[in-house]
């Protein structure tokens, strides 16, 4: 439902701009409305509290003593679920959209491959952010607020409400500097073929950089948390 509503609003915007706004025509706008709806599911945009629950209950100590890396362990479980939700909740919005509109689908295999990689990286960034946000539970009793904050900021700056290209230039610049664009706006642009040739590599590289940087942040936080747990004796 939301995909359709946003599609029609964006059509209205394109029409008011004389068929094209910020270089985006109706076809781009409509496809954007549905592809971001699909990306919502796979990137965990609705929040994630499982790890924080384990921290609150103290079960996390068990995870810390397991002979596998805690972050990788959660990444593995995230990947599985993410793949599943992307299939079950990511594909239907596109199909529903295609019933009413002519969606702009990548014409060549190369774009599809880049898009697939981009989605994987987007999901990875989603994981890294949520992992860090969940770890806050080691220090704050009520870490749900952080998780909700991430969701809100992501919704707006990730381009899930309106494409960030429609933002005023200064705001778009801010959005491009944040990791959230790399979770929705960027993969959507890749899908729409707005990063042709070399641009695709730049887009993927940016995403990869965010993924690595946020994973590192999580790792630093995990280290600090582990020291805290060890000192306090669990």
């Amino acid at each position: 439902m939301f995909g359709y509503l946003r599609a029609y609003i964006l059509i209205g915007v394109a029409a008011a701009g004389g068929g094209e706004v910020a270089g985006w025509d109706e076809g781009l706008m409509v496809t954007f409305a549905f592809i971001t709806q699909s990306l919502l599911a796979g990137t965990g945009a609705f929040g994630e509290q499982e790890l924080a629950e384990r921290i609150r209950s103290g079960d996390v100590v068990v995870d810390l003593y397991r002979p596998v890396d805690v972050q990788l362990w959660w990444l593995a479980s995230w990947s599985g679920r993410s793949a599943y939700t992307f299939g079950s909740r990511g594909i239907p919005p596109m199909l529903l959209g295609a019933v009413v509109f002519d969606l702009r689908v990548p014409p060549d295999a190369a774009t599809w491959i880049v898009f697939a990689l981009s989605v994987v990286l987007a999901s990875g960034i989603g994981f890294a952010i949520r992992f860090a946000a969940n770890l806050v539970a080691f220090w704050l009793l009520d870490s749900r607020g952080v998780d909700q904050l991430v969701t809100l900021v992501l919704t707006f700056f990730g381009g899930l409400l309106v494409p960030i290209v429609l933002f005023p230039p200064w705001l778009e610049a801010v959005a491009r500097l944040l990791p959230f664009a790399a979770m929705a706006q960027v993969p959507a642009e890749v899908f729409l073929g707005l990063h042709p040739g070399r641009g695709a590599l730049t887009a993927l590289a940016t995403q990869l950089a965010w993924f690595v940087a946020l994973l590192a942040l999580g790792r630093v936080m995990l280290g600090a948390a582990t020291r805290k747990v060890v000192i306090q004796g669990g």
Partner: peptide, 22 residues
């Protein structure tokens, strides 16, 4: 409050790019 205000932000953003909607 913020979720609701974001919907308003969308309207404001759109009004910056186009003078009117419908």
């Amino acid at each position: 409050t913020v979720v609701t205000a974001l919907d308003l932000a969308v309207i404001l953003v759109l009004s910056e790019v186009v003078p009117s909607l419908g």
